[in-house]
């Protein structure tokens, strides 16, 4: 089994990476949420970030996208430092944060338009792309409904549309498939695959291993705030499935001896 490539690869150049995370760390009170994460997301890659609950995925992505100030470390988007030149870096990124509210008293159409206008795009382009996005994500019939009345999956999709509107070079998606129905999820995967094919880069966090194995070409396993393994999916998983490798790396599987009372027969 080839060893997973070291994430802190000194040969990687800043320019070639879509996203370069260098030693990001964050402490909340006593708890160290992220403890020096290094990641290189090559340009044009479809990068999966997997880890158990509370591993620091969301915190890492928040720091990499300029939403949460890191205690240490650096994040570069196509060579632009996110914390030194935030406005330039944010132009290159489309961000779908997890667990944040939306301006949900706007209708779906208004929200996507708002995201476009906030980015300083002109009205015609915003209008055209909003229509395209709503159709592609199967939200056209609900475009005039207030986002507060959307279901969880629809809310996720409208947030994704808001992240795509300015055609970014890098997409950072935190749990994009959570509570999204299978048909919409397949549509989203197609959109993302087409986006990567045309030269865009995507980093998604997820804990659905199967999905990551099928969809992504690179993957990083993160637990307790550190990177356990990173590289192409084949490098990381070796001979087994990604899920087996993940469990092996992260540990914490309990034997199925417990809960004997739960057996009905």
């Amino acid at each position: 089994m080839p060893p997973p490539s070291d994430a802190n690869n000194p040969e990687a150049e800043a320019g070639s990476a879509a996203l370069s995370i260098r030693g990001l760390a964050k402490r909340f009170g006593e708890k160290i949420a992220v403890d020096g994460v290094h990641l290189e997301v090559p340009s044009g890659s479809f990068y999966g970030l997997v880890g158990p609950n509370g591993a620091g995925k969301t915190t890492t992505l928040s720091m990499a996208t300029g939403l949460l100030r890191p205690d240490h470390g650096q994040a570069l988007v196509h060579g632009v430092d996110v914390w030194a030149q935030p406005l330039e870096a944010k132009k290159l990124m489309g961000i779908l944060p997890d667990g944040v509210r939306l301006f949900d008293r706007l209708t779906g159409e208004q929200l996507v338009t708002y995201a476009g206008l906030l980015r300083g795009m002109d009205r015609e382009t915003v209008q055209e792309r909003t229509g395209d996005l709503l159709r592609a994500l199967d939200l056209a019939n609900d475009a005039g409904t207030l986002v507060v009345d959307y279901s969880a999956g629809m809310t996720k999709k409208i947030a994704l549309a808001s992240a795509l509107i300015h055609a970014p070079k890098l997409l950072v998606l935190d749990e994009p498939f959570e509570s999204v129905d299978p048909v919409s999820a397949a549509n989203i995967r197609d959109i993302l695959a087409g986006y990567v094919e045309s030269g865009g880069s995507v980093i998604v966090s997820s804990h659905v291993m199967d999905l990551v194995q099928r969809m992504c070409d690179h993957v990083a396993v993160i637990a307790a705030g550190t990177v356990l393994a990173a590289g192409t999916v084949d490098e990381v998983r070796g001979d087994g499935s990604l899920e087996d490798r993940f469990v092996e790396l992260v540990g914490g599987r309990t034997t199925s001896e417990g809960l004997s009372w739960l057996r009905t027969s």
Partner: peptide, 25 residues
Amino acid sequence: TKRAGGNLGWLGRFPATPAGAVAAR
């Protein structure tokens, strides 16, 4: 009730700039 789009409300009336969009919102 499901409603199709087409009505941008204030977002369609304020200037199409970031500040205008914030004001409309």
